[in-house]
Design a protein around this nucleic acid. Structure first.
Length: 487
RNA sequence: GGCCCAUUGGUCAAGCGGUCAAGACAUCGCCCUCUCACGGCGGUAACAGGGGUUCGAGUCCCCUAUGGGUCACCA
């Protein structure tokens, strides 16, 4: 049995931004294809000239590349069914529309936008649903020819059935039924000669042999129009796979205003592409198992349309943050140094050993943009308040700090080798000599070095990063301050 | 407003007629611990409401409510 090849497409319009809803669609489209051994096609839908944005197509390539999605056919790599940019296929649509006109399934319409606007206003006053009144359907062939000859602007509209029902079976939502009477005679070709989105979509999907149309559920209500178009041409419709929407906290569509919903923003804040992909794929899809970490490659094998849910899901960054942290922790030190480096440079002198800094913060960072604030104390201690030395839990207090800090200072002065191990040893030996817990001697040192109550890492790690001289300097300063306070 | 879709804890979600209704994030507590974090252990927390069908309903049907989508010469 020769089964039909699965072909899906990502058909963005180049607006310059990819928000996570778009990205998720691309991801699902890609995965539906790959999980079925099929092809994934990229097609640029730029039939709206007014919305053209410079460089927007590059943003799309860049996004796909960084998430690791490779398309099999597309504008940049070509393919059997090109071109893959709709503006470059402009001439392919009109003949199809005319074919429909010949078979009386579509007709020319010369109505001005003013006239339509008037009808709309009237309909609103009467509180009825606006629907084109088929004014131009009554035109005789002569009249049409004459208007065409005198170059009157026109659109081509599809003649919709006004009785009966249109049914289609959605791979996610099941059978969906619409009354034909709610359908307006949709415009196929606009007066600028470009096809409308819906029309171009159908023509291209058919020509490019798209087997599964995967897209957001906002298209469910326009799907009957698609189906009717396929029927008018006598083509077999593709399988429709509608995806539940991703909504923002509190509900509503994700918009430009809803903050970090753009892929590029997420990257700039220090989210990892793998984490974003993992998080997003789980927003509306479940593997049915308890596994929650997936690589793209794994998903390519196990993704299944059956796991797509019907209800919209809220885009909530809590879990994304956690997942990003998990991905960061899974990195090797070398990998983490690599990705954390730019963030460290933003905050701290390059004299410090990045590897040491990284091993201190790796377990504590969830999103990379936390790094600068987390380590800025390395430049200089925050303002010291002697009350910081009071700590119930460790039983440390100002007096203990005064006693311990000079001892530590003297010990450090004598140290020839100053590294993580030797520092740790120095602390533990001191604690033994004083017959106190390790924590009691480390606590005031940590405060002296950082000027903070809460630090990433402990006294040992911080001293190791600061180095012997800086460590001594900060301890001495702290001692001076404590004495001043006494006087 | 018409039409379409959805509704399991705060969030993501499993469930596809019989379960004490999984798991994860968040939250809370304990342990580990020089603080924080990581890690470990545990707790709180849900089937929107009402009718049916059935021996039995989160699961099937109807109604209500709520949320969302859609009604363009935008995509």
């Amino acid at each position: 049995m020769c089964q039909k090849e699965v072909r899906t497409r990502y058909a963005p319009s180049p607006t310059g931004f990819v928000h996570i809803g778009n990205l998720r669609s691309a991801l699902y489209e890609y995965l539906v294809a790959k999980a079925n051994g099929g092809k994934f096609i990229l097609r640029i839908e730029d039939t709206d000239q007014k919305r053209y944005v410079e460089g927007a197509v590059e943003v799309i390539y860049e996004t796909l590349k960084t998430v690791g999605i490779k398309h099999d056919e597309g504008p940049d790599i070509g393919g059997e069914y090109g071109p893959y940019v709709q503006s470059q296929r402009k001439d392919t649509y009109l003949p199809y529309a005319k074919k429909l006109v010949e078979s009386k399934k579509a007709y020319y319409c010369f109505c001005s936008e003013e006239r339509l606007e008037n009808l709309r206003v009237q309909a609103e006053e009467k509180k009825v649903q606006f629907k084109y009144d088929r004014h131009c359907l009554k035109l005789t062939d002569e009249e049409i020819k004459q208007k065409l000859n005198s170059n009157e602007p026109y659109v081509i509209r599809q003649l919709m059935p006004d009785t009966g029902k249109t049914v289609y079976s959605d791979a996610v939502y099941g059978d969906i039924v619409f009354d034909n009477e709610v359908l307006e005679d949709q415009i196929l070709i606009k007066s600028d000669g470009y096809p409308t989105y819906n029309f171009a979509n159908v023509i291209d999907d058919h020509l490019m042999k798209i087997s599964h149309v995967v897209r957001g559920s906002e298209y469910i209500t326009s799907t009957p129009k698609y189906v009717l178009l396929y029927q008018a041409f006598g083509w077999e419709p593709p399988i429709f796979v509608h995806l539940p929407l991703v909504v923002k906290q509190g509900g509503g569509k994700i918009s430009k205003r809803s903050g970090d919903a753009y892929f590029s923003d997420l990257l700039n804040s220090g989210y990892l592409p793998e984490a974003i992909v993992n998080f997003i794929v789980l927003l509306g899809w479940s593997s049915g198992t308890e596994q929650e970490f997936f690589t793209l490659r794994e998903l390519e094998n196990i993704f299944d349309i059956k796991g797509i849910s019907k209800s919209p899901s809220t885009y909530d960054t809590d879990k994304l943050r956690w997942m990003n942290g998990e991905y960061i922790r899974k990195k090797t030190l070398e990998e983490f140094v690599e990705i954390a480096s730019p963030w460290i440079d933003k905050s701290v002198s390059s004299n410090f050993d990045k590897e040491k800094i990284c091993s201190m913060i790796q377990k504590r960072v969830e999103v990379l943009d936390e790094i600068p604030l987390m380590i800025s104390f390395l430049n200089q201690p925050e303002i010291i308040d002697i009350q910081l030395y009071e700590n119930k839990k460790s039983k440390c207090d100002v007096n203990e700090a005064k006693r311990i800090l000079p001892i530590i200072r003297d010990k450090i002065r004598e140290m020839d080798i100053f590294n993580h191990d030797s520092i740790y040893q120095m602390f533990t030996v001191t604690a033994q000599e004083l017959e106190v817990k390790n924590g009691l001697v480390m606590w005031p040192v940590r405060i002296a070095l950082s000027g903070m109550l809460i630090t990433p890492g402990g006294a040992v790690e911080i001293a190791d990063i600061l180095g012997k001289n800086e460590t001594l300097k900060r301890i001495e300063e702290a001692i001076i301050q404590l004495e001043k306070e006494n006087a």
